Amino acid sequence: MSTERILVIGANGQIGKVLFPALQELWGKDNVTAADIRPVFDGEGIFEVLDATEPKAIYALLSRHKITQVYHLAAILSAKAEENPLSSWEINTRTLLNVLETGRECKVSKLFIPSSIAVFGPSAPRTKVPQNTFLDPSTAYGISKVATETWIAYYRRKYNLDVRSIRYPGVLGYQSMPGGGTTDYAVDIFYKAVKGEQYTCFLEKDTRLPMIYMNDAIRATLELMQASPENLSVDMAYNVASLSFTPEELGTAIRKYIPAFQITYVPDYRQTIAHSWPESIDDSVAQKDWGWQPKFGLDEVVRDMLEHLSNHS
Results as ranks from 00 to 15, higher is better:
residue 177 M to C: 14
residue 194 V to M: 05
residue 196 G to V: 03
residue 172 L to M: 14
residue 160 N to C: 07
residue 192 K to C: 09
residue 195 K to L: 11
residue 181 G to W: 06
residue 214 M to F: 00
residue 184 D to L: 07
residue 207 T to D: 03
residue 163 V to W: 06
residue 207 T to S: 12
residue 165 S to L: 12
residue 174 Y to G: 05
residue 179 G to K: 06
residue 192 K to S: 15
residue 167 R to F: 04
residue 190 F to T: 08
residue 163 V to R: 04
residue 195 K to E: 10
residue 208 R to I: 05
residue 214 M to R: 00
residue 215 N to E: 14
residue 190 F to Y: 08
residue 200 T to G: 07
residue 194 V to A: 11
residue 204 E to H: 03
residue 183 T to V: 02
residue 161 L to M: 14
residue 190 F to V: 09
residue 179 G to H: 09
residue 171 V to R: 04
residue 181 G to S: 08
residue 165 S to D: 13
residue 205 K to E: 15
residue 165 S to W: 02
residue 213 Y to A: 11
residue 209 L to K: 11
residue 202 F to P: 02
residue 196 G to S: 04
residue 200 T to F: 02
residue 197 E to P: 00
residue 215 N to P: 01
residue 159 Y to L: 10
residue 212 I to Y: 07
residue 203 L to Q: 05
residue 201 C to H: 04
residue 177 M to E: 11
residue 182 T to C: 14
residue 216 D to H: 01
residue 183 T to E: 07
residue 162 D to F: 04
residue 169 P to M: 14
residue 209 L to H: 09
residue 173 G to P: 05
residue 188 D to K: 07
residue 164 R to Q: 13
residue 209 L to C: 09
residue 191 Y to T: 09
residue 211 M to N: 02
residue 161 L to C: 08
residue 211 M to A: 09
residue 184 D to S: 01
residue 163 V to L: 07
residue 170 G to S: 06
residue 163 V to A: 10
residue 164 R to P: 01
residue 192 K to R: 06
residue 211 M to I: 05
residue 213 Y to N: 06
residue 176 S to E: 15
residue 176 S to I: 10
residue 187 V to L: 15
residue 173 G to H: 05
residue 168 Y to L: 09
residue 197 E to Y: 00
residue 206 D to I: 00
residue 210 P to D: 12
residue 167 R to S: 03
residue 191 Y to S: 10
residue 161 L to Q: 15
residue 161 L to W: 01
residue 166 I to T: 10
residue 185 Y to M: 09
residue 206 D to R: 07
residue 195 K to Q: 09
residue 216 D to I: 01
residue 199 Y to Q: 04
residue 204 E to L: 04
residue 169 P to S: 15
residue 163 V to P: 03
residue 188 D to A: 14
residue 173 G to I: 03
residue 161 L to V: 10
residue 168 Y to I: 01
residue 209 L to G: 05
residue 169 P to K: 12
